[in-house]
Structure formats: C-alpha cells, structure tokens
Design a protein around this nucleic acid. Structure first.
Lengths: 199, 199
DNA sequence: CTATATTTGCTAACGGTGTTAGGTAAAACG
DNA sequence: CGTTTTACCTAACACCGTTAGCAAATATAG
C-alpha cells in the first residue's frame, strides 16, 4: 500500500518547502521579515496549510534554532578533537564558537538574539545542554589539575560562555567600526586571561 | 502672551502621558506589548495624536533607551567616585553595571536586547559614548602602569564590556535556574581575571 | 465683534500581521 | 458506486503601524 507512503512523502515535501522558503526570508531580510502569508504565497498554497505542518510562526523559526544548536555542537566536537590537552581544547572551542557565530549570524541570532519573547531558551532548546557538556569537560579537567581544585566548574563554564556571548552579541549590535581582526584579538585576549586564571 | 505657553504646557503634558503609559506597558508586559493604539486608548486621545508627538512607535521606545543610558552613566560615575585607584574603579564600575542591569531589566533590554531591527546602537544612542569614556579612563591608567604598556586600550575596553554584557544577556535569557548570587560570583571571577591580566 | 487663519483632534482608511472556523471538492476505501 | 476521510481554500477575526483628509475649536487680525 504505497499510497500512504507517497502521501507522507508529499506532505514531507511541503513541510520542507515551507522551511526552505522561510529560511530564504531569514537570510534575505532577517527573521523579522518572515511571514506566514508570504510563505504561503511562495509555496503556492493557502495560509492554513502551513498550520498543518507547524503550530505557529514561532515554531518554524524554532526549527532553525534547533538546527543551529546541532551544527554548533558538531563544530565544537570537531574543535575538541584537535587536541587532548584541556587548555588547548578550550581555546579551540572558543575559536570554533566565534567562527560559527560570525559565519552563521542568522543562526546565532535565532539561537539567542531575538528577544523571541516567550522562549526560555533551556526549555525551547534542549539541544543547548550538549554544548554545556562539551565545554564543561575540559574545564573540569583543568580545574582538577589546577592550583585551586575547589573552583566551581559551573561557575567557570558560565564565565567562559559569557565572554564568548558578550563579545559576539556586541559585535552584532554595532555592526561596526570595529574590524573582525580586532574582535578576534579581544576574544583571544579574554579567553587567554580566562585560561590563565583557571590553571 | 501666556496662551502659547499654556498650550505648550498642555502639549508637553500629553507627551509625558504617552511616555508614562508606554512605560507602564513595558513594565507590565515587556516592550513587545507596547502598541500605539493601546496608548491612544489609555490617554483618551485618538491614534494620530500620538504622531504629533513622536515620529513612530520606535521613537517612543528609543526615548526610554536614552533615559536608560543617562541613568547608567550616572551610576557609573558614582561608582568611580568611590575610589581613586583604577583597579578598584574598574571593579566598582563592573559592580554598578551589574546592579543597573539587574534592577532595570526593562531598561537594559531596551538598550541592547531587543533586536530592535534597524538600529545601529551607536547612531541611535550617542549617549553610549559617555559610558565608553568612563570605562576607558581607568583602563588607560592601569595599562600605563602595567607590565605591558603597549596593550590596546580599545581592545581591553571591549573585553571588559563583553564580559559584562555576555553575563547579563545570558542571565536574562535563561531566567533561570542560576541564582543571582552565583551570577554575581561569575562576574566577580571574570572581572578579577580581567584586572589581573591587565596589571 | 466678525472674518480669516491656525491649530487640534477626529474618523476612516491602507496595507499589513498571526490565527482559525467552516465549508467544498477531491481522493481513498469498502 | 456510495461513503468516509483527507486536503485545501475562502473568509473572517482581531490585531498592528501609519497616514490622508476633514471638522471643529481656538487664536489672531482687521
């Protein structure tokens, strides 16, 4: 009974066309410009069809957020695999995070930026916890071997992430008289300070 | 000819009622919920009257942003006056910044958070430069007396602000399993690392 | 005090938004 | 072939920011 399967395939196709169209809009004019009606128009279906595939407009944007977190995790993983030394791993992670954000600005904004009102990131994006684990591991290792093994890992993780996120969101805010090279220097400077303080 | 003055006063009164109403809305339900129509309703005028006082809805919100920057500057100034030592000044500034953000969440979000799309913060809020100056001064002093006087002040300022902003925006994002005390510890930890690295 | 000019404030519209109720036509099944 | 299910659409609801154009109230000049 291939009929049901074909129908499922067709439905899946519409779904992915919705996503593709929405993503095009995000890329072209930012997530603010995504509109259900414009999507419907582009995929040549009527508006309510979109609601057969997604609960709301936010749910569509959320899809990209999830994808973004998955991609970030992959990049972080790759970065970690470059070395076995925790300190170098942390540097590589910071590097990868920075590059991810710069190269995927729209993704990054969907992940954090957009005030997306009713979204407590942790509940919306369980994918985030993967990132936390990845970062916490080398930090834990470093703390264990450090002068002050009583340091709070969770605290240090938070500091690490804050430096990264702060720098990136500032970069995105005033886009910008400050060149990427300078920004990268700031990042390296801050991360280096962080790692020194850790060992 | 007191007539013109009375009219000006009345006009001013309407203006401030618009702002007061809008601010109430921001406080109650966030800046997203501000609507021209609801303001008009609340002040018992028709919608176009609001456009006699403000160019657009964004302009109304911007007013709060400006006010916020002025308040922040005042707080930073007060913090600086607590000590003459640059290192202590920096700590006090970080402290004041943190408290400002926590106590005036809505202000802080209007200043940076809100993706307010078409607003390159620097052009929108010239008030920001005051903050930059205030922070750069003690940093410059510290660098001059440091081991490495060739450090880039601008870079260090950026790092300092990034740490603050990153921590705060993360705090606001996942509001939050992490207590304020822990967050404050993270901040102190990061700033201490920064200052150590500076001297 | 009247006539003109100005200001003030309104109604109503334009063109958009997300979302949903309800009905029709097509496809699948027995 | 008739019935049921599914797919899909039209049309509406309730909003939004913004603006054109007009009426009434006010102030100014003669």
């Amino acid at each position: 009974m291939g009929i049901a399967e074909r129908r499922l395939r067709q439905k899946e196709e519409v779904r992915s066309r919705i996503l593709a169209t929405a993503w095009q809009m995000v890329k072209d004019d930012g997530w603010q410009s995504v509109s259900i009606r414009k999507i419907a128009d582009a995929i040549e279906y009527s508006v309510p069809v979109i609601y057969d595939h997604f609960e709301s407009k936010e749910a569509i944007l959320m899809e990209f957020g999830k994808e973004a977190f998955r991609l970030l995790s992959k990049k972080i993983q790759q970065a970690k695999e470059k070395s076995k030394k925790p300190a170098e791993q942390l540097k590589a992670i910071a590097d990868a995070y920075w590059h991810f954000a710069v190269k995927n600005k729209q993704y990054y904004q969907l992940m954090f930026g957009l005030g997306m009102q009713g979204c407590e990131i942790d509940k919306c994006f369980p994918e985030r916890s993967e990132f936390r684990k990845q970062v916490m591991q080398p930090i834990t290792q470093m703390i264990e071997k450090s002068k002050d093994p009583s340091s709070n890992v969770c605290l240090k993780y938070h500091t690490f992430w804050s430096i990264l996120h702060g720098l990136i969101s500032i970069k995105f805010m005033d886009n910008s008289d400050i060149s990427d090279e300078l920004n990268k220097m700031v990042l390296d400077d801050a991360i280096e300070g962080f790692i020194k303080n850790l060992s």
